[in-house]
């Protein structure tokens, strides 16, 4: 074992503390000088995730297995109740499908009568959530589908029953999902019953809030919220959640999906609407 007395001969500025101080100063300079939204940095983040994906999957494997076993155990104990519930749900779903088919036929007739353009068809790509990048600062997930599956930046991402986010970067085999709860997420929505348009914004907490509500808007608790399709990035009518109010009386959206338990997601491959030409607008 070396003696600490040898350390007395070292020059203090060149030892670990001094070098670490210089590195810390350089890091502080980088932190405040480098723009966070630089496309090269976004690309680098995506590349590093593509590279690390196999390691993340290996590390997650034991966690996934423990989760599977725990789910299986809890399912086993409620099997009979679950079966009963599913039978009733199935009955209700059959009725809902019949109603939906009737409504679809009616909608088609109205559309023809009013000469409305048809909403573009949407395709769905399924993916598994392979990494959870959520921290106090950001709320993003990584899914194992990318440009090879036809994904592009901006596409809507659905959970089992509602919108959960949108794609912010796409690699060859992975894509990053900005959750609707992230501070940087702003999605145009409509409250269905009151026909009120608003922007659903994340605030890094569990539920996104409703901003830019019209002055005299009256929202009802529990009314359904869907995407409005404004801006052309997302299709109209994707289910999001229901309107709720916090203790201060501010409106927020209680999401249909539990974002914390997301295992699989569905990407909506809706074609982006082309921007109108200036000539067309003038006419």
């Amino acid at each position: 074992m070396a003696d600490f007395r040898t350390r007395k001969g070292e020059q203090r500025l060149l030892n670990g503390t001094g070098i670490a101080l210089i590195c810390a100063l350089v890091a502080a300079l980088m932190l405040f000088a480098l723009p966070n939204d630089d496309p090269r940095i976004i690309n680098l983040r995506q590349k590093s995730l593509d590279f690390l994906l196999p390691v993340i999957e290996v590390v997650s494997w034991p966690v996934d297995r423990v989760r599977d076993v725990s789910d299986w155990m809890s399912n086993l104990s409620t099997l009979s109740e679950e079966n009963q519930r599913l039978k009733m749900e199935n009955q209700a779903m059959r009725q809902a499908v019949e109603n939906a088919l009737r409504d679809k036929a009616l909608m088609e007739q109205y559309r023809r009568l009013l000469s409305l353009p048809k909403e573009p068809d949407t395709d769905i790509v399924g993916a598994r959530v392979v990494a959870d990048l959520r921290s106090p600062f950001v709320k993003t997930l990584v899914a194992n589908s990318g440009s090879r599956q036809g994904l592009t930046v901006g596409q809507a991402v659905m959970g089992d029953s509602g919108l959960v986010g949108r794609l912010i970067s796409v690699g060859s085999s992975t894509s990053r999902i900005l959750l609707v709860t992230d501070f940087n997420s702003h999605i145009p929505i409509i409250a269905v019953s009151s026909n009120v348009r608003a922007i659903m914004s994340g605030r890094n907490t569990r539920d996104p809030v409703l901003n830019f509500l019209p002055r005299k808007a009256v929202l009802q608790e529990g009314e359904k919220v869907i995407t409005s399709g404004d801006g052309g990035n997302m299709p109209l009518g994707l289910p999001v959640g229901v309107v709720a109010f916090d203790a201060q009386g501010d409106a927020y959206v209680a999401l249909n999906d539990n974002i914390d338990q997301l295992m699989h997601v569905r990407m909506v491959l809706a074609p982006n609407l082309p921007a109108p030409s200036p000539e067309g607008v003038a006419r």
Binding site: C23, A24, A27, A28, L29, M30, L31, F32, L34, N36, I41, L44, R45, S48, L49, L52, L133, S135, F137, V138, T140
Partner: peptide
């Protein structure tokens, strides 16, 4: 910094 989406330099610092 790259994987947790914090600004570059935050965790280095």
């Amino acid at each position: 910094d790259l994987t947790s989406e914090t600004p570059i330099g935050f965790w280095v610092l």
